[in-house]
Design a binder for these strands. Sequence first.
DNA 1: CTAGGTGCAAAGCATTTGCATGGGT
DNA 2: ACCCATGCAAATGCTTTGCACCTAG
Lengths: 156, 156
Amino acid sequence: MSVASKTSTKKRFLQFLAHKKLRITSQRQAIADTVFDTDEHFTAEQLLEWSRGRDKSVSRATVYRTLPLLTESGLVREMDFGKDYKFYDPNYAEHPNHNHLICQDCEKIVEFESEKIERIENEITHKLGFSLKSQRLQITGTCEELKKLGACKKKC
Amino acid sequence: MSVASKTSTKKRFLQFLAHKKLRITSQRQAIADTVFDTDEHFTAEQLLEWSRGRDKSVSRATVYRTLPLLTESGLVREMDFGKDYKFYDPNYAEHPNHNHLICQDCEKIVEFESEKIERIENEITHKLGFSLKSQRLQITGTCEELKKLGACKKKC
DNA sequence: CTAGGTGCAAAGCATTTGCATGGGT
DNA sequence: ACCCATGCAAATGCTTTGCACCTAG
C-alpha cells in the first residue's frame, strides 16, 4: 500500500475519533501511527511494543482500550487464527472483502480477493433470506509449490 | 441428521480412541454421547453441563482434555464467532465443507454448502502455490426476510 | 475548568496443568 | 499390576477494569 493512502487512513481514524467527540491524545496518535504504518497483521502485544517505540508513555491498558475503537472505525479488523490471542489486520480500509490463505506449516499468510466468490456469497445469503453485512473466508493449506521455489522462508 | 448416522459417528469416535490406544472411560462415553446426540453448536461450558446430566462424574478438566481429541478425530470442529469462548460444531463428520451464516441481530446460525465456492477456492489456492487442506467461510448478515416471515425467533 | 483519558496494578475469565487417586485393559 | 485418565484446585495468560492523577479542548 502506498504511503499516501496509509497517511489518509490514519487521517480517517482521527476523523472518526473527532466525530465521536473523543480526544486525540499523544498515545492514540502513536498507536494510530503504528497501525497505519504497516501492512502486517499484528497482536495487541506487538502493537504495544511498536507503539512504545514511538512513545514510551503508551501503556498496555491504552492499547487494549484503543483496539475496539480501531475495529469500530472499520479500518482494522479483528482476526482469529485459532491462537490464544487475537490478530488485527490493518488492510481493511482499502480491501474490505479480502480473504486469507494460511500455510499450516510455516504460518505464512497470503491475502487474496475474488469477485466470483463475493457474487456467490451474495446469492446464497439472499436465497437464505439474509442481507450480507460482512464475510470471512480463511483457507488453510500447505505451500508445497513455494517450498520447491525456495520462497517459503520458515518451517517448510 | 438421522439417529442412525449420529450413532455411527459416535462409534467412529470410539474407534478413533481405540486406534490411538486411548481408554474408553465412562466420562469419555458420556461426553461422546452428548456431542453426537445434538446438531447444535456448543461451548465447553455447555458440553460440561450436558455431559454431567448423563454422568455426574464428568469434570471440567476432562471436558477440556477431551475436546482436543474430538477435533483431532475430525468429527468435531472448533469455531470462532468472535466471542471470548470457543464454539464446537458436531456436524463435520457428514458435511466436512459446510459454511456458516450468522445473523448479527439474533445470532441465529444457518449452515450451507456450495460446490461452486469449493471449486473456486481450490482454483485460487492452487494458483497461489498452495494445496488446500481446509477452509472456513463465515458470513455475517441480518435476517430481514426472516423477520418479515416471523421465522426469526429471537431479538430480530 | 472539567470530563474524558491514562498508567498502574489488581481482577476476570476461559482454559491448562500438577498431583495424588482411581479404574481400564 | 500397570499406568493412563480423572478430579480438584491452583496456575496461566490474555484481556478488562477500578482508581487516582493527568491533560486535551
